[in-house]
């Protein structure tokens, strides 16, 4: 699975906001220019970005394997025609280039995922988005991160319990609604207990924000992100 891994790479030392800017700039220009020449340049950028975050290409490809299957099918589907010539190479090529840029966008975002702990992203959100929305999003993603393994455990338990009681013999709709209902009930029970703890600990709209600061390293990276974004218009 593709997740944050502690390391000392260049990307790990950057502010999440710089890395976010690079991704957006990269995606903008990749969406604007699905041409062989532009994609060659962007491939080179991708290689640099992956190296800067020490991303394992093999593990990333495995993590995105389902998305990659779709990317691989798309050009075939675009090329196939009913009746002569049966396969339109120009259409397939256009779609292939388009698919390839999506692959590059996925790989670049993998560099952010590997190099950025949730804590830093949360700090970036709370410091960038002002007021209540920023606070809700910041604390909210911390809660999602905390409760994800807990609820995965709940869903596993529910499915195992159903299987143990011959649940596999029941109808599909019955099974979906049972998992959904039990999952939702447990989630709400946990949420109601969580809300007591949040209140007891003075959950406030205006807390001390988590620490985060740009370093000298960030400015050239931000400038690079800006260049990428501007290149989308040429």
């Amino acid at each position: 699975m593709l997740t944050y891994e502690p390391d000392e790479t260049l990307a790990h030392r950057l502010d999440p906001r710089s890395k976010l800017a690079v991704q957006i700039g990269f995606a903008a220009t990749a969406l604007a220019h699905p041409t062989p020449r532009a994609l060659l340049v962007l491939s080179a950028v991708t290689v640099v970005v992956l190296a800067a975050a020490r991303v394992s290409l093999r593990r990333t490809v495995i993590a995105y394997r389902y998305a990659l299957v779709v990317l691989a099918i798309a050009p075939v589907l675009a090329g196939v025609t009913i009746g002569s010539p049966w396969f339109d190479r120009a259409d397939a090529l256009t779609s292939g280039l388009a698919s390839y840029r999506v692959l590059l966008i996925l790989l670049v975002s993998a560099a952010y995922v590997r190099s950025t702990p949730v804590r830093d992203s949360r700090a970036a959100i709370q410091r960038t988005i002002p007021g209540k929305p920023g606070q809700l999003l910041g604390i909210g993603i911390a809660l999602v991160f905390r409760f994800l393994p807990v609820l995965q455990g709940d869903l596993r338990t529910i499915r195992e319990a159903m299987a143990a009681r011959l649940g596999t013999e029941r109808g599909t709709i019955d099974r979906i609604s049972t998992v959904g209902m039990l999952g939702l009930t447990r989630a709400f029970d946990r949420a109601d207990r969580l809300s007591l703890a949040l209140r007891a600990r003075c959950f406030a709209w205006n807390p001390t924000l988590p620490p985060l600061a740009f370093s000298r390293l960030d400015y050239p990276v931000l400038a690079f992100a800006l260049c990428l974004a501007l290149s989308a218009f040429y």
């Binding site: 997740t3 998305a67 999506v102 996925l106 993998a110 952010y112 995922v113 949360r122 999602v144």
Partner: peptide, 22 residues
């Protein structure tokens, strides 16, 4: 949560790339 790298998207993926991807 998915955009910033928590593995919540389909099959446990994450990243802004998924939000922009196919």
């Amino acid at each position: 949560a998915g955009a910033i790298g928590i593995p919540v998207f389909a099959n446990g993926t994450a990243g802004i790339g998924v939000l922009i991807g196919e």
